[in-house]
Design a protein around this nucleic acid. Structure first.
Lengths: 182, 182
DNA sequence: GTCTATACGTGGATAGAC
DNA sequence: GTCTATCCACGTATAGAC
Protein backbone atom coordinates (compact mmCIF):
# COMPACT_ATOMS: atom_id res chain seq x y z
CA UNK A 1 0.00 0.00 0.00
CA UNK A 2 3.05 2.21 0.19
CA UNK A 3 2.88 2.45 -3.55
CA UNK A 4 -0.50 4.12 -3.74
CA UNK A 5 0.07 7.78 -4.26
CA UNK A 6 0.04 9.28 -7.71
CA UNK A 7 0.39 6.05 -9.56
CA UNK A 8 -3.18 4.94 -8.99
CA UNK A 9 -4.00 5.99 -12.51
CA UNK A 10 -1.20 3.85 -13.88
CA UNK A 11 -2.40 0.91 -11.82
CA UNK A 12 -5.90 1.28 -13.18
CA UNK A 13 -4.58 1.28 -16.70
CA UNK A 14 -2.51 -1.81 -16.04
CA UNK A 15 -5.30 -3.84 -14.46
CA UNK A 16 -7.77 -2.72 -17.09
CA UNK A 17 -5.44 -3.76 -19.89
CA UNK A 18 -5.06 -7.16 -18.30
CA UNK A 19 -8.73 -7.83 -17.70
CA UNK A 20 -9.88 -6.39 -21.02
CA UNK A 21 -7.45 -8.65 -22.79
CA UNK A 22 -8.33 -11.77 -20.84
CA UNK A 23 -12.09 -11.44 -20.59
CA UNK A 24 -13.01 -8.86 -23.16
CA UNK A 25 -14.07 -5.26 -22.76
CA UNK A 26 -17.79 -5.67 -22.15
CA UNK A 27 -17.31 -8.69 -19.94
CA UNK A 28 -15.15 -6.64 -17.61
CA UNK A 29 -17.00 -4.36 -15.21
CA UNK A 30 -15.62 -1.32 -13.49
CA UNK A 31 -16.50 -2.96 -10.19
CA UNK A 32 -14.16 -5.79 -11.09
CA UNK A 33 -11.30 -3.44 -11.84
CA UNK A 34 -11.91 -1.48 -8.66
CA UNK A 35 -12.07 -4.59 -6.47
CA UNK A 36 -8.88 -5.92 -7.90
CA UNK A 37 -7.15 -2.71 -6.90
CA UNK A 38 -8.78 -2.53 -3.51
CA UNK A 39 -10.56 0.73 -4.31
CA UNK A 40 -14.15 1.59 -5.12
CA UNK A 41 -15.82 2.22 -8.44
CA UNK A 42 -16.15 5.87 -7.62
CA UNK A 43 -12.40 6.14 -7.31
CA UNK A 44 -12.04 5.18 -10.95
CA UNK A 45 -14.22 8.08 -11.91
CA UNK A 46 -11.82 10.42 -10.30
CA UNK A 47 -9.12 9.38 -12.75
CA UNK A 48 -11.18 8.67 -15.85
CA UNK A 49 -14.37 10.19 -17.12
CA UNK A 50 -15.83 6.92 -18.34
CA UNK A 51 -15.08 3.32 -19.11
CA UNK A 52 -14.48 4.21 -22.72
CA UNK A 53 -12.05 6.84 -21.55
CA UNK A 54 -9.94 4.12 -19.97
CA UNK A 55 -9.74 2.06 -23.10
CA UNK A 56 -9.08 5.13 -25.15
CA UNK A 57 -6.14 6.04 -22.96
CA UNK A 58 -4.89 2.53 -23.54
CA UNK A 59 -5.02 2.51 -27.33
CA UNK A 60 -5.47 6.00 -28.60
CA UNK A 61 -1.81 6.37 -29.47
CA UNK A 62 -1.63 3.07 -31.27
CA UNK A 63 -4.72 3.77 -33.32
CA UNK A 64 -3.49 7.20 -34.29
CA UNK A 65 -0.18 5.73 -35.41
CA UNK A 66 -2.04 3.15 -37.45
CA UNK A 67 -4.07 5.90 -39.06
CA UNK A 68 -0.91 7.69 -40.05
CA UNK A 69 0.51 4.55 -41.57
CA UNK A 70 -2.58 3.98 -43.67
CA UNK A 71 -2.68 7.58 -44.80
CA UNK A 72 0.94 7.47 -45.81
CA UNK A 73 0.64 4.15 -47.64
CA UNK A 74 -2.29 5.50 -49.63
CA UNK A 75 -0.05 8.13 -51.18
CA UNK A 76 2.53 5.62 -52.35
CA UNK A 77 2.62 3.47 -55.47
CA UNK A 78 1.80 -0.18 -54.81
CA UNK A 79 4.45 -2.81 -55.30
CA UNK A 80 6.95 -5.03 -53.52
CA UNK A 81 8.91 -2.12 -52.06
CA UNK A 82 5.89 -0.56 -50.46
CA UNK A 83 4.89 -3.92 -49.06
CA UNK A 84 8.22 -4.29 -47.37
CA UNK A 85 8.05 -0.81 -45.98
CA UNK A 86 4.54 -1.23 -44.64
CA UNK A 87 5.43 -4.51 -42.99
CA UNK A 88 8.46 -2.93 -41.38
CA UNK A 89 6.36 -0.11 -40.07
CA UNK A 90 3.82 -2.54 -38.69
CA UNK A 91 6.61 -4.33 -36.88
CA UNK A 92 7.80 -1.04 -35.55
CA UNK A 93 4.33 -0.24 -34.24
CA UNK A 94 3.99 -3.62 -32.60
CA UNK A 95 7.36 -3.29 -30.94
CA UNK A 96 6.57 0.16 -29.72
CA UNK A 97 3.16 -0.57 -28.24
CA UNK A 98 3.92 -4.03 -26.99
CA UNK A 99 2.50 -7.43 -27.60
CA UNK A 100 -0.30 -6.96 -25.13
CA UNK A 101 -1.77 -4.15 -27.18
CA UNK A 102 -1.86 -6.47 -30.18
CA UNK A 103 -3.54 -9.17 -28.17
CA UNK A 104 -6.12 -6.75 -26.91
CA UNK A 105 -6.81 -5.44 -30.38
CA UNK A 106 -7.28 -8.96 -31.68
CA UNK A 107 -9.57 -9.93 -28.83
CA UNK A 108 -11.64 -6.73 -28.97
CA UNK A 109 -11.96 -5.82 -32.61
CA UNK A 110 -15.46 -4.48 -32.26
CA UNK A 111 -14.42 -2.22 -29.39
CA UNK A 112 -11.48 -0.87 -31.30
CA UNK A 113 -13.89 -0.23 -34.14
CA UNK A 114 -16.08 2.02 -31.99
CA UNK A 115 -13.09 3.98 -30.78
CA UNK A 116 -12.65 5.52 -34.19
CA UNK A 117 -14.91 8.54 -33.99
CA UNK A 118 -15.91 9.82 -37.38
CA UNK A 119 -13.22 7.84 -39.06
CA UNK A 120 -12.98 4.60 -40.89
CA UNK A 121 -13.80 1.42 -39.04
CA UNK A 122 -10.98 -0.99 -38.38
CA UNK A 123 -11.98 -3.22 -41.27
CA UNK A 124 -12.27 -0.29 -43.66
CA UNK A 125 -8.87 0.80 -42.48
CA UNK A 126 -7.44 -2.61 -43.19
CA UNK A 127 -9.11 -2.68 -46.56
CA UNK A 128 -7.61 0.67 -47.47
CA UNK A 129 -4.22 -0.58 -46.41
CA UNK A 130 -4.64 -3.76 -48.41
CA UNK A 131 -5.61 -1.77 -51.45
CA UNK A 132 -2.62 0.49 -51.15
CA UNK A 133 -0.07 -2.30 -51.14
CA UNK A 134 -1.69 -4.62 -53.64
CA UNK A 135 -1.09 -4.39 -57.37
CA UNK A 136 -4.46 -3.86 -59.10
CA UNK A 137 -3.60 -6.67 -61.52
CA UNK A 138 -2.73 -9.15 -58.79
CA UNK A 139 -4.51 -12.47 -58.79
CA UNK A 140 -6.87 -13.35 -55.99
CA UNK A 141 -4.30 -15.73 -54.55
CA UNK A 142 -1.64 -13.06 -54.48
CA UNK A 143 -3.96 -10.52 -52.92
CA UNK A 144 -4.97 -12.95 -50.23
CA UNK A 145 -1.41 -13.85 -49.42
CA UNK A 146 -0.43 -10.23 -49.06
CA UNK A 147 -3.28 -9.71 -46.66
CA UNK A 148 -2.23 -12.68 -44.59
CA UNK A 149 1.37 -11.46 -44.63
CA UNK A 150 0.31 -8.16 -43.13
CA UNK A 151 -1.89 -9.73 -40.51
CA UNK A 152 0.77 -12.28 -39.67
CA UNK A 153 2.73 -9.58 -37.88
CA UNK A 154 0.08 -9.35 -35.20
CA UNK A 155 -0.64 -13.05 -35.31
CA UNK A 156 2.97 -13.85 -34.50
CA UNK A 157 2.84 -11.64 -31.44
CA UNK A 158 -0.25 -13.52 -30.39
CA UNK A 159 1.28 -16.91 -31.06
CA UNK A 160 4.31 -16.05 -28.96
CA UNK A 161 2.23 -16.10 -25.78
CA UNK A 162 3.69 -18.51 -23.28
CA UNK A 163 6.73 -19.10 -25.39
CA UNK A 164 10.08 -18.50 -23.76
CA UNK A 165 11.34 -15.79 -26.08
CA UNK A 166 12.57 -12.23 -25.83
CA UNK A 167 10.74 -9.42 -27.55
CA UNK A 168 13.60 -9.05 -29.99
CA UNK A 169 13.41 -12.71 -30.95
CA UNK A 170 9.69 -12.48 -31.53
CA UNK A 171 10.13 -9.36 -33.62
CA UNK A 172 12.72 -11.09 -35.75
CA UNK A 173 10.50 -14.13 -36.22
CA UNK A 174 7.55 -11.92 -37.15
CA UNK A 175 9.69 -10.18 -39.75
CA UNK A 176 10.83 -13.47 -41.25
CA UNK A 177 7.33 -14.83 -41.48
CA UNK A 178 5.85 -11.69 -42.96
CA UNK A 179 8.55 -11.43 -45.59
CA UNK A 180 8.21 -15.09 -46.41
CA UNK A 181 4.58 -14.53 -47.23
CA UNK A 182 4.86 -11.25 -49.08
CA UNK B 1 -43.96 -13.47 -42.74
CA UNK B 2 -45.06 -16.56 -44.63
CA UNK B 3 -41.72 -18.04 -43.68
CA UNK B 4 -42.29 -17.96 -39.96
CA UNK B 5 -43.35 -21.40 -38.98
CA UNK B 6 -40.86 -23.94 -37.76
CA UNK B 7 -37.81 -22.12 -39.02
CA UNK B 8 -37.90 -19.43 -36.37
CA UNK B 9 -35.20 -21.25 -34.49
CA UNK B 10 -33.01 -21.27 -37.57
CA UNK B 11 -33.63 -17.56 -38.06
CA UNK B 12 -32.60 -16.82 -34.49
CA UNK B 13 -29.41 -18.74 -34.96
CA UNK B 14 -28.65 -16.91 -38.16
CA UNK B 15 -29.22 -13.42 -36.78
CA UNK B 16 -27.37 -14.26 -33.58
CA UNK B 17 -24.38 -15.50 -35.52
CA UNK B 18 -24.34 -12.31 -37.52
CA UNK B 19 -24.62 -9.92 -34.61
CA UNK B 20 -22.28 -11.85 -32.33
CA UNK B 21 -19.65 -11.77 -35.04
CA UNK B 22 -20.07 -8.11 -35.87
CA UNK B 23 -20.50 -6.63 -32.42
CA UNK B 24 -19.32 -9.31 -30.06
CA UNK B 25 -21.29 -11.57 -27.76
CA UNK B 26 -21.71 -9.35 -24.71
CA UNK B 27 -22.35 -6.27 -26.79
CA UNK B 28 -25.31 -7.99 -28.42
CA UNK B 29 -28.50 -8.11 -26.36
CA UNK B 30 -31.36 -10.53 -26.73
CA UNK B 31 -33.62 -7.56 -27.27
CA UNK B 32 -31.55 -6.64 -30.29
CA UNK B 33 -31.85 -10.10 -31.77
CA UNK B 34 -35.57 -10.20 -31.11
CA UNK B 35 -36.20 -6.79 -32.63
CA UNK B 36 -34.28 -7.66 -35.74
CA UNK B 37 -36.57 -10.65 -36.20
CA UNK B 38 -39.72 -8.78 -35.34
CA UNK B 39 -40.45 -10.90 -32.30
CA UNK B 40 -40.12 -10.33 -28.55
CA UNK B 41 -37.44 -11.41 -26.15
CA UNK B 42 -39.78 -13.93 -24.61
CA UNK B 43 -40.13 -15.65 -27.95
CA UNK B 44 -36.43 -16.43 -27.93
CA UNK B 45 -36.84 -18.20 -24.62
CA UNK B 46 -39.29 -20.56 -26.19
CA UNK B 47 -36.58 -21.81 -28.53
CA UNK B 48 -33.52 -21.50 -26.32
CA UNK B 49 -33.08 -21.81 -22.60
CA UNK B 50 -30.58 -18.99 -22.31
CA UNK B 51 -28.32 -16.69 -24.24
CA UNK B 52 -25.45 -19.05 -23.70
CA UNK B 53 -27.62 -21.82 -25.07
CA UNK B 54 -27.81 -19.93 -28.35
CA UNK B 55 -24.10 -19.52 -28.70
CA UNK B 56 -23.58 -23.10 -27.66
CA UNK B 57 -25.91 -24.32 -30.39
CA UNK B 58 -23.84 -22.23 -32.78
CA UNK B 59 -20.44 -23.62 -31.89
CA UNK B 60 -20.82 -26.76 -29.85
CA UNK B 61 -20.17 -28.99 -32.81
CA UNK B 62 -17.11 -27.10 -33.89
CA UNK B 63 -15.61 -27.09 -30.42
CA UNK B 64 -16.25 -30.79 -29.97
CA UNK B 65 -14.55 -31.51 -33.27
CA UNK B 66 -11.61 -29.39 -32.23
CA UNK B 67 -11.40 -31.33 -28.98
CA UNK B 68 -11.27 -34.56 -30.90
CA UNK B 69 -8.51 -33.25 -33.10
CA UNK B 70 -6.41 -32.23 -30.13
CA UNK B 71 -6.98 -35.54 -28.37
CA UNK B 72 -5.99 -37.45 -31.47
CA UNK B 73 -2.90 -35.36 -32.13
CA UNK B 74 -1.72 -35.93 -28.57
CA UNK B 75 -1.47 -39.65 -29.23
CA UNK B 76 0.70 -39.22 -32.30
CA UNK B 77 4.44 -38.76 -32.60
CA UNK B 78 5.45 -35.17 -33.43
CA UNK B 79 7.07 -34.43 -36.76
CA UNK B 80 6.48 -33.06 -40.24
CA UNK B 81 3.92 -35.70 -41.13
CA UNK B 82 1.74 -35.00 -38.13
CA UNK B 83 1.99 -31.29 -38.85
CA UNK B 84 0.65 -31.81 -42.34
CA UNK B 85 -2.13 -34.01 -41.10
CA UNK B 86 -3.18 -31.59 -38.39
CA UNK B 87 -3.21 -28.69 -40.81
CA UNK B 88 -5.32 -30.68 -43.24
CA UNK B 89 -7.77 -31.50 -40.50
CA UNK B 90 -7.95 -27.88 -39.47
CA UNK B 91 -8.74 -26.97 -43.05
CA UNK B 92 -11.39 -29.62 -43.08
CA UNK B 93 -12.94 -28.22 -39.92
CA UNK B 94 -12.91 -24.71 -41.30
CA UNK B 95 -14.50 -25.82 -44.51
CA UNK B 96 -17.15 -27.80 -42.69
CA UNK B 97 -18.17 -25.11 -40.25
CA UNK B 98 -17.77 -22.16 -42.52
CA UNK B 99 -15.75 -19.03 -42.47
CA UNK B 100 -18.20 -17.20 -40.28
CA UNK B 101 -17.59 -19.63 -37.44
CA UNK B 102 -13.88 -18.84 -37.67
CA UNK B 103 -14.56 -15.14 -37.63
CA UNK B 104 -16.78 -15.48 -34.62
CA UNK B 105 -14.24 -17.57 -32.78
CA UNK B 106 -11.56 -15.01 -33.48
CA UNK B 107 -13.72 -12.11 -32.38
CA UNK B 108 -15.02 -13.84 -29.26
CA UNK B 109 -12.16 -15.86 -27.88
CA UNK B 110 -13.09 -15.26 -24.29
CA UNK B 111 -16.65 -16.43 -24.88
CA UNK B 112 -15.49 -19.57 -26.61
CA UNK B 113 -13.26 -20.11 -23.62
CA UNK B 114 -16.20 -20.11 -21.21
CA UNK B 115 -18.10 -22.56 -23.35
CA UNK B 116 -15.73 -25.32 -22.41
CA UNK B 117 -17.24 -26.69 -19.23
CA UNK B 118 -14.76 -28.62 -17.16
CA UNK B 119 -12.36 -28.80 -20.00
CA UNK B 120 -9.28 -27.01 -21.13
CA UNK B 121 -9.57 -23.36 -22.03
CA UNK B 122 -9.08 -22.39 -25.64
CA UNK B 123 -5.51 -21.30 -25.04
CA UNK B 124 -4.66 -24.46 -23.13
CA UNK B 125 -6.16 -26.40 -25.99
CA UNK B 126 -4.02 -24.57 -28.47
CA UNK B 127 -0.96 -25.08 -26.32
CA UNK B 128 -1.62 -28.81 -26.16
CA UNK B 129 -1.98 -28.90 -29.90
CA UNK B 130 1.21 -26.94 -30.39
CA UNK B 131 3.06 -29.29 -28.10
CA UNK B 132 1.83 -32.34 -29.95
CA UNK B 133 3.05 -31.23 -33.34
CA UNK B 134 6.31 -29.62 -32.29
CA UNK B 135 9.55 -31.53 -31.97
CA UNK B 136 10.84 -31.14 -28.40
CA UNK B 137 14.25 -30.21 -29.77
CA UNK B 138 12.93 -27.53 -32.08
CA UNK B 139 14.36 -24.05 -31.82
CA UNK B 140 12.20 -21.23 -30.61
CA UNK B 141 12.00 -19.86 -34.15
CA UNK B 142 10.77 -23.16 -35.50
CA UNK B 143 8.24 -23.59 -32.74
CA UNK B 144 6.88 -20.12 -33.34
CA UNK B 145 6.60 -20.65 -37.06
CA UNK B 146 4.69 -23.86 -36.58
CA UNK B 147 2.27 -22.08 -34.31
CA UNK B 148 1.73 -19.34 -36.83
CA UNK B 149 1.28 -21.94 -39.56
CA UNK B 150 -1.54 -23.54 -37.63
CA UNK B 151 -3.22 -20.27 -36.81
CA UNK B 152 -2.81 -19.06 -40.38
CA UNK B 153 -5.59 -21.39 -41.44
CA UNK B 154 -8.13 -19.36 -39.52
CA UNK B 155 -6.39 -16.12 -40.31
CA UNK B 156 -6.72 -16.74 -44.01
CA UNK B 157 -10.46 -17.25 -43.64
CA UNK B 158 -10.58 -13.96 -41.83
CA UNK B 159 -8.47 -12.18 -44.41
CA UNK B 160 -10.72 -13.38 -47.21
CA UNK B 161 -13.55 -11.16 -46.02
CA UNK B 162 -14.72 -8.88 -48.79
CA UNK B 163 -12.52 -10.58 -51.31
CA UNK B 164 -14.22 -11.91 -54.42
CA UNK B 165 -13.33 -15.57 -54.00
CA UNK B 166 -15.14 -18.88 -53.76
CA UNK B 167 -14.84 -21.02 -50.65
CA UNK B 168 -12.80 -23.54 -52.59
CA UNK B 169 -10.33 -20.88 -53.63
CA UNK B 170 -9.93 -19.65 -50.09
CA UNK B 171 -9.44 -23.18 -48.84
CA UNK B 172 -6.75 -23.77 -51.41
CA UNK B 173 -5.01 -20.53 -50.53
CA UNK B 174 -5.15 -21.37 -46.83
CA UNK B 175 -3.60 -24.74 -47.53
CA UNK B 176 -0.77 -23.17 -49.54
CA UNK B 177 -0.01 -20.61 -46.89
CA UNK B 178 -0.08 -23.07 -44.01
CA UNK B 179 2.18 -25.49 -45.81
CA UNK B 180 4.54 -22.72 -46.79
CA UNK B 181 4.99 -21.88 -43.14
CA UNK B 182 5.20 -25.37 -41.73
C1' DG C 1 -7.75 11.13 -3.39
C1' DT C 2 -11.09 8.08 -1.84
C1' DC C 3 -15.38 6.97 0.25
C1' DT C 4 -20.85 6.14 0.88
C1' DA C 5 -24.99 6.37 -1.06
C1' DT C 6 -27.78 6.37 -4.70
C1' DA C 7 -29.98 7.09 -9.29
C1' DC C 8 -31.01 5.16 -13.57
C1' DG C 9 -31.01 2.30 -17.39
C1' DT C 10 -30.59 -2.22 -19.38
C1' DG C 11 -29.95 -6.98 -19.66
C1' DG C 12 -31.26 -11.70 -18.80
C1' DA C 13 -34.88 -14.38 -17.40
C1' DT C 14 -39.72 -16.08 -15.72
C1' DA C 15 -44.97 -16.40 -15.20
C1' DG C 16 -48.97 -16.66 -17.22
C1' DA C 17 -52.43 -15.05 -20.81
C1' DC C 18 -53.81 -15.67 -25.57
C1' DG D 1 -45.71 -20.19 -30.83
C1' DT D 2 -45.82 -15.63 -29.42
C1' DC D 3 -47.21 -11.88 -26.39
C1' DT D 4 -47.53 -8.74 -21.99
C1' DA D 5 -46.00 -7.82 -17.77
C1' DT D 6 -42.75 -8.08 -14.46
C1' DC D 7 -38.64 -9.36 -11.56
C1' DC D 8 -34.16 -8.93 -10.22
C1' DA D 9 -29.32 -8.25 -10.65
C1' DC D 10 -25.87 -5.64 -12.50
C1' DG D 11 -23.54 -1.96 -14.93
C1' DT D 12 -22.41 2.85 -15.58
C1' DA D 13 -22.41 7.08 -13.66
C1' DT D 14 -23.19 11.11 -10.29
C1' DA D 15 -23.57 13.85 -5.85
C1' DG D 16 -21.65 15.01 -1.96
C1' DA D 17 -19.20 13.83 2.48
C1' DC D 18 -14.62 13.03 4.58
Amino acid sequence: MAARQGDTKAEIRQVAMELFTQQGYEATSLREIAERLGVTKAALYYHFRSKEDIVRSLFGDYLAALDDLVAWASTQAPGPQLRTQVIDRMLHLSAEHGRQAMQFALANQHVVRELHPGRETASELLRTLFGAITDPNATMQEALRIRVALLSVNLTMFAAQGLDATDAQVDAAARDIAHLLS
